[in-house]
């Protein structure tokens, strides 16, 4: 019983981390049909920026986090302005942006490597200590990650449903031309969506590195997992992505317990392949259109 609860607890923490990084990816794909292959590098950048601000400059942790979030959001806007905007109206935008963002990811990752070196670094933003509840060992850091993820997802959901700009984002995702004809400045919406995605990636990078450590290529794994989650949920479905993230997190914890860490990722990938072949639009997705 204790073991099951322990697995569930670590699975939900994993899922919560995945949800943060997946939400940004799903938002960008939903709003502008863009698979952002530089997401992983932005995530790593967020982790390193917080390391730089808190560990290097000695700033308080919350300030460091905000700094990382803002810089990563700015990187998102830059990617829109320099890379995505010139090709938005081209016929094969989906493929071109996929390839171009691979390049952006490589550039960002190499810059991190040049600046901070290849050795693993500790993430200073973390909370030591733990509590034991009903025989389950719960580090404060894990609880905080769960809390932050829930807070961020709730805030994002509220913003999309209830605010004016949230409605504009949803409208753009559902029908770009119609949104423009209603007076929605879609260029602004796209830049905003990439900024939000960048900010979420930063948070995700900080939380992930707080449980392991900072490495220049630390974003590759979470990004591939975020893609898997998006695909399982149906690309662009935000509520579906959050649910799928939690599901995959728990599944991964179970697989790790039963089969060992070695094969957990490969098994997850096989799961995606099966989902894609059986239900190409994802579990929550529809054949056409997107849902935000």
């Amino acid at each position: 019983m204790d073991t099951i609860l322990q697995i569930l607890a670590s699975g939900l923490t994993l899922g919560a981390m995945y949800a943060i990084s997946t939400a940004g990816l799903a938002l960008v794909f939903g709003a502008m049909n863009m698979l952002n292959m530089s997401h992983g590098a932005i995530l790593a950048l967020g982790g390193y920026l917080s390391y730089f601000a808190v560990g290097g400059m000695g700033l308080p942790a919350p300030v460091g986090v905000v700094f990382a979030v803002l810089v990563c959001a700015a990187v998102g806007v830059l990617i829109y302005q320099i890379v995505a905007r010139p090709m938005l109206r081209s016929a094969n935008f989906e493929t071109r942006i996929f390839i171009a963002t691979i390049g952006v990811g490589v550039i960002l990752e190499s810059i991190i490597l040049e600046t901070f070196g290849p050795q693993p670094k500790p993430q200073p933003v973390s909370m030591p200590g733990s509590l034991t509840l009903a025989g389950v060992h719960l580090p404060y850091q894990n609880l905080m990650i769960l809390g932050i993820a829930m807070l961020l997802m709730a805030a994002l959901g509220f913003a999309l449903q209830k605010t004016r700009i949230g409605r504009a984002i949803r409208a753009t995702a559902q029908n770009r031309d119609a949104a423009q004809l209603m007076g929605v400045p879609i260029g602004y919406v796209y830049a905003l969506v990439l900024a939000i995605s960048g900010g979420l990636a930063a948070v995700s990078g900080i939380t992930i590195s707080s449980l392991s450590s900072l490495l220049p290529n630390m974003g590759a794994d979470p990004m591939l997992k975020a893609f898997i989650i998006c695909v399982v949920a149906g690309l662009g479905s935000l509520p579906g992505s959050v649910m799928a993230a939690l599901f995959i997190g728990v599944l991964e914890a179970i697989v790790q317990y039963v089969f060992g860490v070695r094969f957990s990722f490969a098994l997850l990938l096989i799961l995606v392949i099966i989902v894609l072949i059986g239900r190409p639009q994802g579990v929550f997705g529809r054949v056409q259109g997107v849902r935000l």
């Binding site: 559902q174 031309d177 423009q180 004809l181 209603m182 259109g289």
Partner: peptide, 27 residues
């Protein structure tokens, strides 16, 4: 740009409706 043209007072009701499919009628 299109959004500025709308703001200037020209509104286009497009062919094929182009509704926001996942929004309600009121939305």
């Amino acid at each position: 740009r299109p959004d500025a043209i709308v703001a200037s007072g020209i509104v286009h009701v497009p062919q094929g409706d182009l509704l926001f499919p996942d929004m309600t009628v009121l939305e």
